[in-house]
Every structure is written in C-alpha cells, then in structure tokens.
C-alpha cells in the first residue's frame, strides 16, 4: 500500500514536471552555466585534471539537485496541495519517498546533460567509461535522500534558499568526496579504485535512504 502511494507521488511529480518542466530546465541550465563558469574561472588546463573536473561536476550537480528539490516542494506549497497529501494515511512517507524517487529520475537526466558538457568543455580522456557510469549512477542515487531531507526541514521557513545549502553541503561532504574521487579514478583508468568508491556511494545511498524513510516523514508538516 505504501509502495503504491510512493509510486503515485513519484508519478504525479513526473507528470507535473512534464507539464511544466521548470525544475528540469532550470537545473539543466544551472548545471551548464555553473560548469562553464567554473571551468572558465580556473582555466582549461586546471579544469582538465580528473579530480578537478569531477569536483566541479559534483558541486554543480549538488546545487542542481537542491534547485530541483526546492522547486518540487514549492509547487506543493503554491496551491496548498501538500496539506491534502499529508492528511492521507501514510501520506508523509509517500510524500518523502515519492519526491526523493522523482528527484533521482530528474537528477539522472541533469547528470547526463552536465556530464556531457564536462566532456565537451574539458579535454578529458575517459579511459574507463563503464566504471565512470557506475560511479555517477551510485552518486546520483545517494544524493536525493539528504537533499530532500534538508528541503523538508527548511520548508515554510524564512531564508529557506540559504538554509538548504547550509544544511545539505556539510552533510554531503562524504558523498561529494567519494563521488569526486570515484569519477577521477574512472577517468584516469583506475577501475578498481572506481569500483571501491562506487561501493562506498552505494553504502551511503542505503544508509541515507533508510534513515530518510525512517525519520524524515516525522518532520513533514
């Protein structure tokens, strides 16, 4: 029953995004601009270092995730739809997990766009593309639970725009480090290193999803 509700919230989110793809367009544009400006600021030679390129990519993707998640909850608040969902039995669990699930799907698209842009802008020869895809997939799956958690905690608060990154970024430090080093390892051909970092990201994803699903619905009001 709960799984069905989660699926309904995620499907509703996908429909809303298809109807008005402001979140997706905003996040895609944001990641493109951020990667472009970051690469330009530090210069093409410095940006072509695998660890630097990976760090720029993950920082940009994290901010894009914050943008998309905030937009998803803004949409709920605009017409007070959130109150109706929360009033349903199991509505809190479904809202949290459904939003996180929908964010994962959206982030996968944004990650592809951002990744493609990094490969075009930065002269980076990726020697282990499959390992890179694995790290990016694990990293994308591990991002939403924490980002949605921070958006939920900052919901209806003053200065929410500043508060979400202040809360999310320190919590995401282990994730960002693992994802950056994993991508750097994959880009430089170190497949065993990339697999090890992917394993860590999968562990983070498990912990974050279980923790989020257990405790975050309590904060949804």
């Amino acid at each position: 029953m709960t799984l069905q509700r989660i699926g309904l919230v995620a499907a509703r989110e996908a429909r809303a995004e298809r109807g008005q793809p402001e979140g997706l367009i905003g996040a895609a544009t944001f990641i493109a601009v951020l990667i472009f400006v970051e690469s330009l600021t530090i210069g093409p030679i410095a940006a072509s270092h695998p660890a630097t390129a990976a760090a720029l990519y993950w920082i940009a993707l994290t901010f894009a995730a914050i943008l998309v998640a905030s937009r998803a909850f803004d949409r709920e608040l605009e017409d007070d739809a959130i109150d109706a969902v929360l009033a349903l039995p199991g509505g809190r669990d479904a809202l949290y997990a459904g939003k996180a699930l929908a964010l994962t799907a959206l982030l996968a698209i944004v990650a592809l766009i951002g990744g493609g842009l990094v490969l075009i802008l930065v002269p980076l020869a990726v020697t282990a593309p499959l390992a890179l895809a694995l790290v990016v997939t694990a990293g994308v799956v591990a991002l939403p639970p924490i980002v949605v958690l921070t958006v939920v905690l900052a919901l209806r608060l003053r200065a929410r725009g500043a508060l979400v990154p202040i809360l999310a970024l320190p919590m995401l430090v282990p994730h960002l480090v693992a994802a950056t080093y994993g991508c750097a390892a994959a880009a430089s051909g170190d497949t065993s290193g990339a697999f090890a970092w992917s394993g860590l990201l999968v562990a983070f994803a498990l912990v974050y999803w279980v923790l989020g699903f257990t405790i975050v619905p309590a904060a949804l009001e």
Partner: peptide
C-alpha cells in the same frame, strides 16, 4: 545549521 533551523 541545526541552530539556524531552530532560530528561523
């Protein structure tokens, strides 16, 4: 950040 959430 925890204290900020409380104060806001």
């Amino acid at each position: 950040g925890y204290l900020l959430v409380r104060n806001l």
